[in-house]
């Protein structure tokens, strides 16, 4: 564990807490893409298959449980909670996220470390996570007013993978056999997708105006 990875995990955890806070405090999920939340639940379920078989550390196991349970809780909330579900922008959240799932699956079948169920699922989860934010970014462009918590949620979600890239650079130079090109490339794509969001987020913060993404 190095400081970059710990910072990345904490930023990721914080983004989930901000989203839970927004939904719980405002009893609303307006501006949140259910499709992105479903993709994230799928990412965690396919990545943490080893949750019950391999014990790496208490921290690792606890964090996996937190990510899986929070993503499922958010999807349940947006689909079934009597109050929250009515605030979901169903007609705005129209990204065809099944194409992202299919594309990631094809990529995982083509490019993986080893052709085993677990490694293909792991590669699938890495590729899917890289594009899972797309429905959310499209929804932000459509929904005119982005409330602060939603903006902060997306910001921390983008920042966490940037910390992971620093972690991979650090591990590359400190550990001999550490070379993971799959998460490298996917992580760069993922963080790149946030580039324009980070730019407009910075502008809104600098000019102290509401965050608005150009359509």
């Amino acid at each position: 564990m190095n400081v970059f990875r710990f910072a990345g995990d904490m930023t990721h955890l914080f983004s989930v807490l901000v989203l839970l806070l927004k939904i719980y405090a405002t009893k609303s999920c307006s501006g949140i893409s259910l499709k992105t939340q479903e993709l994230y639940a799928l990412v965690f379920l396919t990545r943490y298959l080893d949750l019950l078989t391999d014990f790496i550390s208490l921290y690792n196991t606890v964090m996996k449980l937190v990510f899986i349970s929070s993503s499922l809780a958010i999807v349940w909330c947006m689909r079934a909670h009597p109050v929250v579900r009515r605030t979901y922008d169903k007609d705005q959240d129209t990204f065809r996220h099944y194409t992202l799932v299919a594309g990631s699956l094809v990529l995982a079948l083509l490019f993986h470390d080893r052709f085993t169920i677990r490694e293909v699922c792991w590669a699938f989860s890495i590729y899917l996570e890289a594009v899972a934010i797309l429905p959310q970014l499209v929804l932000l462009q459509r929904s005119r007013n982005v409330d602060n918590l939603t903006g902060q949620y997306v910001f921390f979600l983008g920042a966490y993978r940037a910390f992971y890239i620093l972690n991979w650079i650090y591990r590359y130079f400190t550990e001999q056999h550490f070379s993971r090109w799959i998460p490298w490339i996917a992580g760069l794509v993922q963080t790149g997708l946030y580039a324009d969001f980070f730019y407009y987020y910075y502008l809104s913060w600098k000019n102290n105006v509401k965050l608005q993404l150009p359509a």
Binding site: R5, D9, H12, R47, D50, D54, I56, N60, M63, K64, F67, D113, R114, E119, W122, Y164, N167, P183
Partner: peptide
Amino acid sequence: EVEETAHDEL
């Protein structure tokens, strides 16, 4: 044998 690529990251 092929060492298990343990994914120790989240």
